[in-house]
Amino acid sequence: TTIHVGDLTLKYDNPKKAYEIAKKLAKKYNLTVTIKNGKITVT
């Protein structure tokens, strides 16, 4: 599972963990989490 945050690309083997991290990042920086085709993007 890949999380895209701006220019950063973070890879995680565990999709659930990746989603949790994405949610935390989104909350911290007041951003939105988008999931599309298995890719998690924080914008």
Rank of each mutant, 00 (worst) to 15 (best):
E20I: 11
A18P: 01
V5R: 02
N37C: 07
V42A: 04
V42S: 00
I3P: 01
K39N: 14
T32Q: 11
A26E: 05
D13I: 05
T32Y: 06
T41M: 14
I40E: 01
K39I: 15
K27D: 12
E20L: 10
A26S: 05
V5L: 14
N37Q: 11
L31T: 03
A26V: 03
L31M: 11
L8K: 06
V42H: 01
K27V: 09
I3W: 00
T9R: 11
E20F: 10
A22N: 00
V5N: 02
V5I: 15
L10I: 13
N30F: 07
Y29L: 05
Y29M: 04
L25P: 00
I3N: 02
D13E: 08
N14W: 08
T2K: 06
V5M: 10
L25S: 00
T1M: 13
D13A: 09
K11H: 15
I21L: 09
I21R: 02
K27E: 13
K27A: 12
E20N: 08
K39W: 12
K27H: 09
L31G: 05
K16A: 12
K23N: 11
P15R: 06
K27G: 06
A26D: 00
T34R: 09
D13T: 06
T34D: 07
I21M: 12
T43V: 11
I21P: 00
K28S: 05
I40A: 01
T34Q: 12
L8I: 12
K24F: 13
I21W: 10
G38S: 10
N37F: 10
L10F: 09
L25M: 08
T32W: 04
V42M: 15
N30S: 08
L10V: 08
G38H: 09
K23I: 15
Y12V: 12
T32R: 07
N37V: 09
L31D: 01
D7Y: 09
N37H: 11
G38C: 01
Y29Q: 01
L31A: 05
I21D: 05
K16R: 10
I3R: 02
D7E: 12
T32A: 10
L31C: 07
K24Y: 15
D7M: 08
K36V: 14
I35Q: 05
K36Y: 09
Y12N: 03
K16T: 12
L8A: 03
K27Y: 07
E20D: 10
K36M: 13
T34S: 12
K28M: 12
N30M: 07
E20G: 05
A18T: 02
Y19W: 14
D13C: 13
L10T: 03
A26F: 04
Y12T: 08
K23T: 13
K36P: 01
G38E: 06
A26C: 02
G6P: 03
K28W: 11
I21G: 04
N30V: 03
P15G: 07
K39L: 14
G38W: 04
T9L: 13
K11Q: 15
L25Q: 01
T1F: 13
G6T: 04
V33S: 00
T34P: 00
K16V: 12
T43L: 12
N30T: 04
Y19M: 15
D7H: 13
H4S: 10
K28Y: 11
K16H: 12
T2P: 04
P15H: 10
L10P: 05
K39V: 15
T32E: 09
H4Y: 11
E20W: 12
T1Y: 13
A18W: 04
K17P: 01
D13H: 05
T9Q: 12
K27T: 08
L25T: 01
V42T: 01
N37D: 14
Y19F: 13
L31F: 07
K39A: 14
N30D: 09
K16N: 10
K36L: 13
A26L: 04
I35F: 07
L8W: 09
A18M: 03
Y29G: 03
V5C: 14
K28N: 06
V5H: 05
K11P: 07
H4F: 11
N30C: 07
H4V: 15
T41N: 09
L10G: 04
T41A: 07
Y29W: 08
E20S: 08
T43C: 07
T32H: 10
T2C: 10
H4G: 05
I21F: 14
H4N: 09
T34L: 11
T34K: 10
A18H: 01
K27Q: 10
N14K: 04
K28L: 12
G38R: 07
T2G: 03
G38N: 12
Y19D: 04
K23M: 15
L8N: 03
T9V: 15
K24W: 15
I40P: 00
